[in-house]
């Protein structure tokens, strides 16, 4: 099975090509604003290097967040177009899953963190199992203080991975049994593994059902008070 993985949900964008589990090429760039410019040239380069043509692709895997809204949309639009052009299946993957999958621990509970900006963080807990991780709870969007409270109330030793550097240092101060580790960002090679697992289970949605995972409604409100005041005669 030939898989193309597109990762652009965080400041680190990456692309990988894989034959089954074996990654045959990958490319990465860290630049929060450069995802639109990066993705297609990276694909073009990797396909040339690997001697692939787009028609060879069976599955297009893409990180649908949580993360940077613009980055997620650039990645998903690119993936939708590629999959649609060559009749490949589309495999959406979670950024938190991709981060947790690469955490190096055999016994600690894993906490994956993605910076959701505006003082909020997407977090989810995982249990390491042979060959991977299993998510132990739901994805939550929390403040730094709330995340600290979650960590403090958990009795198991934990490993926090992902963009914990975006959290204030005070979050970890005085917490026992909590370590921080790599990776900081999800990468396309992890997206490959997650997508492959879904594809092998035949657990891929229809492309129209694939949506970004924003975790947050658009930041707008209807100002009913002003609307009323501005219709004085009704």
């Amino acid at each position: 099975m030939r898989i193309v993985a597109i990762e652009s949900a965080t400041p680190a964008a990456s692309v990988a090509l894989a034959e089954g589990r074996e990654v045959v090429g990958s490319s990465q760039r860290v630049d929060r604003r450069g995802h639109v410019a990066f993705l297609v040239p990276a694909l073009e380069f990797l396909f040339d290097q690997a001697g692939w043509s787009p028609g060879d692709v069976d599955v297009v895997a893409v990180d649908v967040g949580p993360g940077l809204f613009g980055g997620i949309r650039a990645g998903l639009s690119t993936a939708q177009a590629l999959a649609g052009a060559v009749g490949a299946r589309l495999a959406p993957v979670s950024s938190l899953d991709a981060v947790a999958l690469r955490a190096a621990t055999a016994h600690r509970k894993i906490w994956a963190v993605v910076d959701a900006r505006r003082g909020e963080y997407a977090v989810a807990p995982y249990q390491p199992v042979p060959g991977g991780v299993v998510r132990e709870g739901g994805v939550e969007l929390v403040s730094a203080e709330a995340f600290r409270a979650i960590l403090a109330s958990d009795r198991r030793d934990g490993l926090v991975v992902g963009d914990w550097e975006a959290l204030p240092e005070s979050v970890f101060r005085g917490l026992h049994g909590i370590k921080t580790g790599r990776p900081r960002y999800p990468a396309a090679d992890a997206v490959v593994d997650l997508a492959l697992a879904r594809a092998e289970r035949d657990d891929l949605p229809h492309p129209d059902e694939v949506r970004p995972r924003y975790l947050r409604e658009p930041d707008v409100r209807i100002n009913w008070t002003d609307f009323r005041r501005e219709e004085p005669w009704r």
Partner: peptide, 14 residues
């Protein structure tokens, strides 16, 4: 970003 990324990728793939 959405239409531009989509169009660019579609053109490359085709």
């Amino acid at each position: 970003m959405v239409g531009f990324s989509y169009g660019k990728a579609l053109a490359w793939a085709l």
